[in-house]
C-alpha cells in the first residue's frame, strides 16, 4: 500500500485530517479534563476532612 498517497487523500488531506485530528484532540482533552476534575474534587474532600479532624 502507498502510504504517502493515502495521507494525501487525493488533495483533500487538510480537510480530512483536520476533521479527524480536531475530533480526536477534543475527545482526549475532554477525558483529561474530566479525570483531572475528579482528582481535584477528591483532593478537596480530603482537605476538608483533614481540617475537620484537626478541629
Amino acid at each position: 500500500m502507498n502510504w504517502l498517497g493515502f495521507f494525501e487523500m487525493k488533495g483533500y488531506a487538510w480537510y480530512i485530517w483536520g476533521s479527524y485530528g480536531v475530533t480526536l484532540l477534543i475527545i482526549m482533552v475532554e477525558i483529561l479534563l474530566v479525570v483531572h476534575k475528579r482528582k481535584v474534587v477528591l483532593q478537596q474532600l480530603r482537605l476538608i476532612r483533614d481540617a475537620e479532624i484537626k478541629e
Partner: peptide, 8 residues
C-alpha cells in the same frame, strides 16, 4: 462524486 473528501 466527492472522491476522498466524503470520508468526513
Amino acid at each position: 462524486v466527492q472522491s476522498e473528501a466524503y470520508r468526513i
